Each structure stands twice: as structure tokens, then as C-alpha cells.
Computed example of a mutant assay.
Amino acid sequence: MELETLKQLVVKTLDDMKGQDIKTIDVRGKSAITDMMVIVTGNSNRHVKSLADAVELAVKEAGVQPLGIEGDGQSDWVLLDLNDIILHVMLASTRDYYNLEKLWEVGEGLPQSRPNMLGTPD
């Protein structure tokens, strides 16, 4: 399945299941393990698990076999590896603590040629 189509399916499923603050981050060129991260907040451990389960079912029905899932019904963080996309479903407190958006968005929006200490391009 094409990356954009898979992303749309994941985001729609999360939205339908009332996932909060859905964020997609393109990590091509930053990570060798995946092309995109999707991060979403669930409002309880049960909701976190339900969001991950719903996405797992939706992608399987679309013909995509997830590579793995980490976390369980008591988790505050469930990771679903879809190869091209890694989905992180987290409680708000866990998401705030780990701040994956900041980690993976480093360098976005920076100019290609940054000035050195003298103010001239490298």
C-alpha cells in the first residue's frame, strides 16, 4: 500500500475512534527504520489499547500485515509497527514526558545552509 494511502487510513481510523491530537511526522532521511511516525493521545489505558487495536484491524483488512505491536491493555504507550509507518498511541502524560514530536522534528524548517559563528554560510 502506498505511504499516503496508509497514512490516510491510520489517521481516519484514529479520528473515528476519538484519538486526540493526531500528529504525523515525515522522518524520511532522518530514520532508516520507517518513513513516517504517527503520534496520538488516548484518554485512558483502555482507550490507548483500543486505538492501536482499531488501526491494526483496519490495516489488516486493507491487506497490510503489521510487523509488530508493543504494549498491552495496561500500557500508557502502545507502539504499532506498520513498516512504512510507526504508530505511537500514548496517554497525555506519557506523550508530554517523552515529547517525540520535538525529537523527530529537529531540523525541520531550518535553512539548508546555516550560518557559522561568524555569520557566513558553512
Score class of each variant (00 low, 15 high):
Lys49Cys: 12
Val48Lys: 06
Ile33Val: 14
Glu70Cys: 07
Thr34Ser: 11
Pro66Asn: 03
Ser75Trp: 07
Gln20Glu: 15
Leu79Gln: 08
Val89Arg: 09
Ala58Met: 05
Val27Leu: 14
Arg46Ile: 02
Met17Val: 00
Ser93Cys: 06
Met17Lys: 06
His47Asp: 09
Ala54Ser: 13
Gly73Thr: 13
Ile85Gly: 03
Ala58Lys: 00
Glu101Asp: 14
Leu87Ala: 05
Ala62Tyr: 06
Thr24His: 15
Glu56Ile: 01
Ser50Trp: 06
Gly29Pro: 10
Lys18Tyr: 14
Val59Thr: 03
Pro66Lys: 00
Lys23Gln: 14
Lys30His: 02
Ile39Phe: 15
Ser50Phe: 06
Val78His: 08
Gly73Cys: 02
Asp76Glu: 15
Leu82Asn: 08
Lys30Cys: 07
Met90Val: 11
Asn83Pro: 01
Gly71Ser: 06
Ile85Asn: 01
Val59Tyr: 02
Asp81Arg: 02
Leu79Lys: 04
Val59Met: 05
Asp81Phe: 09
Leu79Ser: 08
Leu91Ser: 09
Glu101Tyr: 09
Met90Cys: 11
Ser44Asp: 01
Leu80Pro: 02
Glu61Val: 01
Lys49Ala: 13
Leu100Asn: 15
Val64Trp: 09
Ala92Gly: 07
Ile22Cys: 09
Ser93Gln: 14
Tyr97Trp: 15
Gly73Met: 05
Arg28Gly: 10
Gly68Pro: 12
Leu57Phe: 08
Asp72Phe: 07
Thr34Leu: 04
Asp15Lys: 13
Glu70Asn: 13
Gly73Gln: 12
Glu70Asp: 11
Thr41Phe: 01
Ala62Gln: 10
Thr34Trp: 05
Ile69Phe: 07
Thr94Arg: 15
Ala52Glu: 05
Arg95Met: 02
Glu61Gln: 04
Gly19Val: 01
Val64Cys: 04
Lys30Pro: 12
Ser50Tyr: 09
Asp81Pro: 08
Leu100Tyr: 12
Val38Ile: 15
Asp35Thr: 00
Gly19Ala: 02
Gln65Arg: 10
Leu51His: 08
Gly68Gln: 07
Leu51Met: 08
Pro66Ile: 00
Asp84Glu: 13
Tyr97Ala: 03
Ala62Met: 03
Leu91Glu: 10
